[in-house]
Amino acid sequence: MAKQPADRPKRVTMTDVARRAGVSQPTVSFVLNDRRDVAVAAETRRRVLEAAAELNFVPNRAAQQLRSNRSFTIGVVTNGIVSQPYAGLIVLGIQQVVQPADYVCMVVDTTDDPEEGDAAVASLLAQGVGAILYASPSPKPLHQSPRLDGIRTIFVNCWPETGKADTVLLADEYAGGRAAAAAVFDRGHRAVAFLGGPRNDYACKERRRGFADAARAAGLRPTDLLHRYGTYQIGSGYDLATEAVAEHGSTALVCGNDRMAIGALLALHDLGLDCPKDVSIVGFDDQPDVADQVRPRLTTAALPHLMLGRRAGELVLAGPDDAPERVVVDCQLIERDSVGDPPRRTSRPRRRS
């Protein structure tokens, strides 16, 4: 005779919690659903929460959603973010905040095709999400689906091409660029080169503005300093750094990102120079497992991807009332080993043969 399967353990209900706490079931519902519009004594609230913890009570979110017409699911639409080495911290930050509140993130990674993005949003809306968060690995405008009427929409590290979002969260690229440049100007460097990414890239333009203001604060004219533009890649940093140091005698390089800074380090090696003894280098991003692992360890402005995600999660939990239209998160300067005093050099170096 086949053995009968064991009975499933009985699901703990609000009635069980009420019995343990010595209160009514509606009181348990008011406490566990955080109904602040209903007066519940502090001692009663404490007993309910302790009883729920002792019984390992797990809320039935599906039933709650039906009763309250409230969704506990968030749709996150990204464009290439899951394949980036550090931008995925945005999604991690969102999850760190909303998951303890029993929310679930549904992440959909799309291409640049607007139709694919619209289809992704339609799929998320069909799942009954309570909010849509667009997230990008780099700051840029993104296509916003026209099907979002009435749905709360937050853009993280991006903004809508057309229309308006409820809230846009961005890193303070300008202040980060200014802090990165000030790191070398404050050490006395005057032959400073700005080695940026693509000239018309939003982040590059904001960081260049910060560089210019840091130069003015140091008593220099930005137009007198070397500006070169590349691709945010290691090879680009190598080529631009070689030109800046070998042809223009630059003693400090403010690079568009950490990858370009690594290229600059390689260029100095081929020129027979040392960082920071001969040339100082500043990066941007504080890329995990890179900026603090190279030698010398990079001084760099940190992109706050994790904090951007956390702030977005906090906005979702706080609700739409009085939500700010724009949130700017600081890019902290991380000082390590790649910046020193200007060298006493009388001749320009030449590349090793």
Rank of each mutant, 00 (worst) to 15 (best):
L169Y: 02
L169W: 03
L170M: 12
A171R: 07
A171P: 09
A171C: 13
E173V: 02
Y174I: 01
Y174A: 06
A175M: 08
A175Q: 09
G176A: 07
G176W: 00
G177P: 01
G177R: 01
A179T: 00
A179E: 04
A179W: 00
A180T: 05
A180K: 03
A180M: 08
A180D: 01
A180N: 01
A181P: 04
A182S: 13
A182V: 12
A182M: 09
V184I: 14
V184F: 11
V184A: 12
D186K: 04
D186E: 13
R187I: 14
H189K: 14
R190W: 02
R190S: 09
V192H: 05
A193W: 07
L195R: 09
L195A: 14
G196R: 03
G197S: 10
P198D: 13
N200T: 15
N200A: 14
D201W: 00
A203C: 09
C204E: 14
K205H: 07
R207I: 06
R207D: 08
R207H: 07
R208Q: 08
R209S: 09
R209G: 06
R209N: 13
G210E: 08
G210H: 07
F211T: 08
D213E: 00
A215F: 12
A215H: 10
A215P: 06
R216G: 08
A217D: 12
A217G: 11
